[in-house]
Design a protein around this nucleic acid. Sequence first.
DNA 1: CCGCGAATTGTGAGCGGTAACAAGGAACGC
DNA 2: GCGTTCCTTGTTACCGCTCACAATTCGCGG
Lengths: 350, 350
Amino acid sequence: MMGSMSTPDAAPGGPSGQDLGRPPTIYDVARVAGVSHQTVSRFLKGDSGIRPKNHERVTQALNALGYRPNLTARSLATRQAHRVAVLIQALDQLGPARILQGVILEARAAGYLLDIVTVDATDRAALDEAIRAVTSQHIAGIVTLASSDEMTDAFTRAEFRVPVLIHTETEDSVVGAPEHLRGLHAIVDHLVGLGHRRFFHIGGPPSWVASRNREHAYLAALERHGLTSLGTAHGDWSAPSGYSAAQTIPREAGVTAVVCANDQMAIGAMRALTVVGRRIPLDVSVTGIDDIPEAAYVQPPLTTVRLAFEQQGRRAFRRLLAQLGGAQELTEDPPAQLVVRASTGAAPLG
Amino acid sequence: MMGSMSTPDAAPGGPSGQDLGRPPTIYDVARVAGVSHQTVSRFLKGDSGIRPKNHERVTQALNALGYRPNLTARSLATRQAHRVAVLIQALDQLGPARILQGVILEARAAGYLLDIVTVDATDRAALDEAIRAVTSQHIAGIVTLASSDEMTDAFTRAEFRVPVLIHTETEDSVVGAPEHLRGLHAIVDHLVGLGHRRFFHIGGPPSWVASRNREHAYLAALERHGLTSLGTAHGDWSAPSGYSAAQTIPREAGVTAVVCANDQMAIGAMRALTVVGRRIPLDVSVTGIDDIPEAAYVQPPLTTVRLAFEQQGRRAFRRLLAQLGGAQELTEDPPAQLVVRASTGAAPLG
DNA sequence: CCGCGAATTGTGAGCGGTAACAAGGAACGC
DNA sequence: GCGTTCCTTGTTACCGCTCACAATTCGCGG
């Protein structure tokens, strides 16, 4: 009926098919550019075999329409999900939260969505259930940041068709003195330098890989100085557990240095020691690991080691990505840095 | 030709078409159940108009194959994303992290995926950029947990086609004494009961809604007792800023109670006060808000208010869901609870 | 100027669902 | 017993994109 023939668009009201109600598709782009949708698809894919003229026209059409790819459709067609499940123990601990932060950053950069699931790593049933729930979804891979043995067990128990990356502090670095263990060495060196000879350790739950690594590093560092530990008590990473653990230190042992596996427990331990009248650092020195924000402001300020959590997270995700055939890994070892504050001092005489 | 007629399955090799390499689709289910794929779809949708016989057969086929719906395909067909963007300031603060935890839980329960973006709320450009990035995706809605004015501004500046839920502590509860403000009232009541009359406040950044709410509640609580505040200093929620803020308290003002807007700043403040020789709680009482895990183990243990962060998060997400036409809201007000510890004591005489 | 192979482009068919409509059956009244 | 209506089912067509393959086009030697 009407004269217009260039735009076989039956929809009335639109000036030139520029802005339709729904977001533009590659077909819209193709129409505007005067090419086939496949050419647009190829362009988007970064294909090189496109003639300059078309390349140009597609580019223009693309930002004329403000095209955004529909990731859902792409996923459906390629049948690969840009979605990764993250199993994490708890968000309310600084370390894990920061690691997660790193994972989030890296995932966003790579265009992946995260399916974050918090799990109680000590509850096998809940763990299995969570894994089942997660794997019944369409996901590209799994990252786990809660690295207890129960967790690892649960994962080896289940069968997966997707790559799983079990993040532990030392993932790969078991060989070759990983940085954070170097951090622990630095702590022990620092204390020995202050004259300490009688050490006690407050570690995390024995079933955690991180606990064992840290304890192991502590013992190794002592050994390097020809010293042995007077004992270890295990907490659960929390301040209360550090408090209880410190109470188990035998009074008569003459411990002058308490090395804790994280700051929270160190804070609890300091409290327990203070309560029984031991002065920090005059009578006993206490150290932590993590350098939580409060560490500098507790009484006395805590000597600790600052770890690059965020980078650990980035690395974990990158590693998974590598398994998925994506980008290459991040290889730099996350640094660790000794932070000396007032909770450590010269060993008491005698 | 053959006797079997119940399974018109031409595929060779498989025993009965049970386990093919790829995950089963509704077509597979339909074939096994001997109905059309649409019937299966209807069943999945919870449609009631299905004859008992078919209902039964579909049910059986469903779990015989272990069918899981392909959310991607569903999204494509219904063109609605089950994906919500969460804008959050920082994960390494306990409060926000726990709120996020609540959001995560609720989102999972509702079958939504979260696109978590951490933003620096003070950087307008970054903020706008983050919002643009997020909204260019196909999302159902947005929840923001970083409730500074910059954030709110950025959101009112932008146009959205999806619902946005800006979470603040007091969202709706500005009227009718929200719980956490009741918590602040409880703190003031507690201190007044101990004989304190000279109060000072260490608040968060003035641009944060939460800061203003808390300060407002603090002032209101004092007023109820016929008292006025001797002043307010603003920090940035961190321990160091609490330390600095406490240093601004004029020595000669005779302040006996310092009410801080969160625990971290309280910890910093206690340190600053101790450094200048003021004893806590003998000379001055200090209180926090949040009840972070370390609060009970700093020296002295901190009197504070425990807030139900996780529930705040759940509520925020539910509220968004309600806007999306989903489930109804959670209406219970998250509780707040005064936790009295050793950082508060009787006001000094004179 | 034609033929031919390589390089570009276009076409058609899914990916796994849902929506709209058409078709088949059962129930019911006469 | 038969026509009519309503209830269940089945059919067909997308959603927006990618893949495999067919159709063009281009460039160049003969």
